[in-house]
C-alpha cells in the first residue's frame, strides 16, 4: 500500500525562511530511517508559492484561469511530500508519527493520505471486494 505524507507549508516556508540546521539534520536522519527500513519510495520539497501558478476552470467546458503566486493561505499549501510503501494504514501512521515536527514553532502539520492503487481505479468492484475480503480474513485469523 502506498501512502503520501504531505508536509504543509508555513508562513516561514512561504517567506523562504530555511529550516534550522537541527531540523534539517533530523529530517535527513528520518529519511535515512525510511530508506533503511526499505519503505522509502520518494521524497521531495517544493519551492514556496512565490513562483507558482494556479490554473482553475471556473466555467465547465470553458477556458482555464491563471493566477500567479504567492498565495496567502499557507496552511492549505504543500511544502513537501514523502511517498512510502507499507503493509498497512497503521504502519503508515506509525511512520508519519515518527517524522520530526516539520516546523518547530507551532505551525508544523503533516497530512497522511493513501495513494490509489492501479486496480482500485480500474478494477471491477467485485474482484476488489473479493481481495479486500481475503485481506480482512487474513488479518482476523492472524489475530485469533
Amino acid at each position: 500500500m502506498r501512502f503520501m505524507m504531505i508536509v504543509k507549508a508555513t508562513t516561514d516556508s512561504e517567506a523562504g525562511v530555511l529550516p534550522s540546521q537541527e531540523l534539517i539534520d533530523a529530517m535527513q536522519k528520518y529519511n535515512e530511517e525510511l530508506v533503511k527500513a526499505g519503505v522509502m519510495l520518494a521524497a521531495d520539497g517544493l519551492h514556496s508559492s512565490a513562483n507558482a501558478v494556479r490554473i482553475s476552470y471556473p466555467e465547465p467546458g470553458g477556458k482555464p484561469k491563471l493566477v500567479d503566486g504567492p498565495f496567502t493561505e499557507a496552511k492549505e499549501m504543500i511544502a513537501g511530500y514523502t511517498l512510502i510503501e507499507v503493509k498497512s494504514r497503521e504502519e503508515a501512521l506509525e511512520w508519519a508519527l515518527r517524522m520530526p515536527d516539520p516546523h518547530g514553532f507551532g505551525q508544523g502539520e503533516i497530512e497522511l493520505r493513501q495513494v490509489f492503487e492501479f486496480e482500485e481505479l480500474l478494477g471491477d468492484p467485485e474482484s476488489r471486494a473479493k481481495e479486500e475480503e481475503l485481506r480482512r480474513q487474513a488479518q482476523e485469523s492472524k489475530k485469533a
Binding site: 503493509k87 497503521e90 504502519e91 501512521l93 506509525e94 489475530k143
Partner: peptide
C-alpha cells in the same frame, strides 16, 4: 493493540 502489533511487526 493494533498499533502495538504494527509497531512490533516493524
Amino acid at each position: 493493540h493494533r498499533t502495538i502489533d504494527t509497531i512490533w511487526r516493524m
